[in-house]
Nucleic acid binder design. Structure first.
Lengths: 362, 362
DNA sequence: CCGGTATGGGAAACCGTTTTCCTACCGAGA
DNA sequence: TCTCGGTAGGAAAACGGTTTCCCATACCGG
């Protein structure tokens, strides 16, 4: 089984600092924390000097063990290859950094088994809470976690019952409505919908809205919906092909998210279908790729970065309330960010003012 | 300061399991670990039942504290908004997951202050090692960390002296050479280079190779190099503008990475410069965006995902060697992955076989 | 001179594991 | 009968911090 303590250069502990400063461990600890303890200026100086001298780094594991919180937050996403998530993670990371937390990352690759693993591992690591941007877990399972005492905030997704767990989302209803109405305003009659996986609530909503708006406009829906397996780009292509291959193919398609829309666009390119002339496309998310000159995807802004920031703040507020407000947790809240349609080329509009390279256009 | 133990539903500890199973904590612990201890089958059964009954989750903080390793690895990247990093992270995450480690994420946003913070925070969290894909730290600082006993593997970058710290990189020399020679083969005489930040070693190399190959071909180099501030897309545009605005602008440009190349392409689009007719472009990295129909960027494959996988394996091997092989660490190694030029549209070639939507083309 | 209050700091229990010893039993070989 | 080796499991000391008590002063007013 090898040596117990190999090469490992001896670590500096609080006891070493205490010894050097000529005080007790307890006093050093008081100095470290920000609690308002009485410590003489002279003592403070000696401790600070000792810490500097030894280059002492407190062991967060030990601290977490006794404090029963780790100053650590889990973030679980489906895949970091969809640019939506990097944007969200950037927002989350910013806030976590500002507020002194560390980010533990987990990716599920769309597998609910992996998702469960990741979450369990995070729990064992004593994360103070989790931001879930992943999507495979059932509502019941999520609220089970919450019931078990884990702080969770859903980002960019929410549950049917919105009073069980915090969520920060974009206004899917309104966004989808804008998208579909815009296509209608362009004069399209046969509008298709390339839907996302239907066990994912936001995609369900986008689909429902699509159907509703179409009906209200007196337009047909039958045979115009194609459901993608996953949200991965690749699955956009076959789904789009299905739509395009119909007897009476749509002249416009509202795609459930940009990642799929990219796939759809590629599928069009592959078959020589011109956009927007032969078919107009509107996506959802406004990932940065959408604004590229060679893409020009009209899409609904998902405000991923802000969702991330909001979700992180929300989670940390909840976590900290648990410790400060005598254990009275915040009420559950569903925060919905307004959104808008960003008109670019694929819907047939002439693009908005260039919107140059800002990475995200918020 | 609030209550010490608020809402917090009482956690199940190993002691509870022990009590329920009618054994001592030590025995439960032995059952949990995979060490080869003698435990009677009957006892095993009772312990397993107790664990299931109580839904016991071992506290990784406590475990890490005594074991002096956290089964945790830090990953620090410059920015997760450059698609290169998500690809790399995916590779790292795969391996970490397979081998039972958890990923702690840190992003530096190009600030060396933030980078230092992130690393310090990871050290306090007792990460077992760090994969560094970030680039702002000086060589000396990195090797200082290593000297201090931290296991580090550099991913997609390395140091001037390659014998100080492990690194996994792509063959920058060869890749850059292929890129420049390809442009030369297309008949270009005035070839420019849009270089990355010159404090980052891979970018230095790419630039050196550019100059060398040009000289060897008897072509001019003077005034044909523009250096981008950072690797962010946005900084590609002004740098490209500089090149384009010269008295005798280049007819082809080798761009230090795809992210900058995207920015460069946008800059061209904005000024009505046609690609590849007015100016040919070759990038470096082969991020997935490069293969989009509307982009078709010819580029050198950086094999990000494999770099990630390799780096992770390398790090874990080193970590585990430290504990198993009597403390004799592996020798430092620089692993270099071969690479190739992926010919698409921006160099003037007719694209290779469609390479449809595989995310990465390895 | 005495009690009370603001300061300053030490002792020790505790967080939840792992691991090292130690003991104890059992069957076998001498 | 006496060891000895293989099994089985308990006791207790870590790991490196935090926090609760508790004890000393010093200084104040009365």
């Amino acid at each position: 089984m090898g040596n117990r303590f190999p090469t490992e250069t001896k670590r500096v502990t609080i006891a070493d600092v205490a010894a050097l400063a000529g005080v007790s461990k307890g006093t050093v600890s008081k100095f470290l924390g920000d609690g308002d303890y009485y410590i003489a200026e002279a003592t403070r100086g000696r401790i600070a000097a000792a810490i500097a001298e030894l280059d002492f780094q407190p062991n967060a594991l030990a601290r977490g063990l006794v404090r029963r919180r780790s100053q650590t937050v889990g973030v679980v996403v489906a895949s970091v290859l969809n640019p939506l998530y990097p944007e969200m993670i950037t927002g989350i990371d910013e806030v976590l950094g500002e507020r002194g937390y560390t980010l533990i990352f987990g990716s599920t690759e769309g597998s609910s088994v992996k998702e469960a693993d990741v979450i369990r591992s995070m729990q064992q690591r004593q994360v103070d809470g989790i931001v879930m941007a992943s999507v495979t877990l059932q509502d019941a399972e999520v609220s089970q976690l919450v019931d078990a005492g884990l702080d969770v905030v859903l980002a960019s997704r929410h549950m049917r019952r919105s009073d069980l767990v915090d969520a920060v989302i974009v206004d899917n209803e309104d966004g989808a409505r804008q998208a579909v109405e815009h296509l209608i305003a362009h004069g399209h009659k046969r509008i298709g919908h390339l839907a996302g996986p239907q066990n994912v609530y936001p995609f369900e909503i986008r689909r429902e809205v699509f159907e509703r708006v179409m009906r209200q406009a007196g337009l047909p829906v039958n045979g115009l919906i194609s459901v993608a397996e996953s949200t991965r780009q690749e699955s956009g292509a076959p789904a789009m092909a299905e739509l395009l291959g119909a007897d009476e193919p749509p002249t416009a398609v509202f795609v459930a998210n940009d990642s799929l829309a990219i796939g759809a666009i590629e599928a069009c390119a592959a078959r020589g279908v011109r956009i927007p002339d032969d078919v107009a496309i509107v996506g959802f998310d406004n990932i940065w790729v959408a604004h590229l000159h060679g893409v020009q995807l009209t899409t609904v802004d998902s405000r991923a970065r802000e969702i991330g920031r909001n979700a992180a703040h929300r989670l940390l507020d909840r976590i900290e309330a648990r410790w400060n407000d005598g254990g009275h947790p915040h009420p559950v809240e569903l925060r919905m960010l307004p959104t808008r349609l960003v008109r670019r080329g694929t819907c047939g509009c002439t693009p908005e003012p260039p919107d140059p390279l800002t990475g995200s256009s918020n």
